[in-house]
Design a protein around this nucleic acid. Structure first.
Lengths: 157, 157
DNA sequence: CGTTACGTTCAGTATTGATTGAACGATTGT
DNA sequence: ACAATCGTTCAATCAATACTGAACGTAACG
C-alpha cells in the first residue's frame, strides 16, 4: 500500500500547489485533492488528521470552499458531526468564478468609459476594445458551462 | 483636469486591486491600467514617476509583464531609453495563461490516473471525470482565442 | 573628464495572508 | 454531573512576497 500512499499524497500535494498558484490557500487545494481521491463524506476532524493540519485551518478552509460552492455539508444518520463532500461537478464552480471575475472587470471598464472626460479618445478606444473582448470571453465561457452541464445530464439520463 | 485625474487614477487603482485579486503584484496591474489609459510607449522612469513607486519596482514588474507577453519593448528614434507599451491584444495573454494552467492541471490528473494502484475505482472515476472536463474546457478556450484573433483581423483588414 | 539620467540588481524592510494553539460553547455518552 | 469530542473563533506566529533604497554599470551630453 505504500505505492498507493505515495501516488495519492503526491497528487494531493500537487493540488495544494496549484491552488496556491491560483491564489487560493494551499490547504484548500489539498482538501479538494483529498475529496477527489477519497470521495467522502468526511468529517472535519478526519480531514485534519489525514492532511496533518490544525482543525482551525480545516474549519476555516471548509467554510471558504463552502462559500465558493465547492463543498457542501451532508448529514450522516446516527452521527452529528459535520460531514462534507464535493458538490456534484465541483469543477464547474471554478469556471463560474472565472465568469464572475470577468464580470467585475467588465464593470470596471464600463465605469472608466463613463467617467472618462471627453477628449481622451485613445484611452476610450482602448477601454472599449478591451471591454468588448471581456464580454465576448464571458459569454463564451457561459456557453461552455451550459454545454458541459448538458453533457453531464445526458450521461446520467 | 481634476475630473479626468480622479477617474483615471481610480481606474488604475482598480486595475491594481483586481491584479492583486488574481495573485499578480499590485503594481503590475497598475502598470497595465496606466498603459490602457495613456497608450505609450513610455519609459520606465516616467512610469515610476506617474505611479509614484520606486524605479526598482517598475523595472521588476516590467520584466515580469514582458515575460508574460503583456508588455513589449519598443525603440524610440533619437532616444535610447527603454520604452514599453502593451502588446497588441494584450488581454489575450490572460486567456492563454488560463489555457496553460488548465494544461498543467490536466497533466497532473493524468499522472494521478497512471500511478493510482488498481482497486481505487471511485478515485479513478472522479479523476477521469474531472480530467475530461478540464480538457474540454481547455479546447473550448483555445477555440475562443482563435475566434477572437479572427475577429480582430477582420476588423483591421 | 564630470555630470546627469537611466535601468538593473540585491539586501533589507514591510505587508499581506496562511497557519496554528488555545479558549470556548455545544453536543453526546457515561 | 462529568468527560470526551467536535467545530468555531481569535490572537499570535510564521512564511511568502511585494516593495524599497542604495549601489552599480552604462550611455549621453556638457
Amino acid at each position: 500500500m505504500s505505492d498507493s500512499h505515495d501516488a495519492v499524497t503526491a497528487f494531493i500535494e500537487r493540488m495544494g500547489l496549484s491552488a496556491q498558484n491560483d491564489g487560493l490557500p494551499r490547504i484548500a487545494g489539498r482538501m479538494i485533492g483529498y475529496f477527489i481521491i477519497h470521495g467522502g463524506p468526511t468529517s472535519l476532524a478526519d480531514l485534519a488528521r489525514s492532511l496533518q493540519v490544525s482543525r482551525a485551518s480545516v474549519s476555516t478552509n471548509a467554510r471558504f470552499l463552502r462559500d465558493l460552492g465547492i463543498l457542501e455539508a451532508t448529514a450522516v444518520p446516527g452521527d452529528r458531526q459535520d460531514y462534507y463532500q464535493l458538490v456534484d461537478r465541483h469543477y464547474m464552480r471554478l469556471l463560474e468564478g472565472h465568469v464572475e471575475r470577468m464580470g467585475t472587470m467588465s464593470a470596471s471598464l464600463a465605469q472608466a468609459e463613463r467617467e472618462l472626460p471627453a477628449g481622451m479618445d485613445g484611452a476610450r478606444e482602448r477601454l472599449e476594445d478591451m471591454h468588448d473582448f471581456i464580454d465576448i470571453a464571458r459569454d463564451h465561457t457561459r456557453d461552455l458551462i451550459e454545454r458541459l452541464a448538458a453533457r453531464r445530464n445526458k450521461r446520467h439520463d
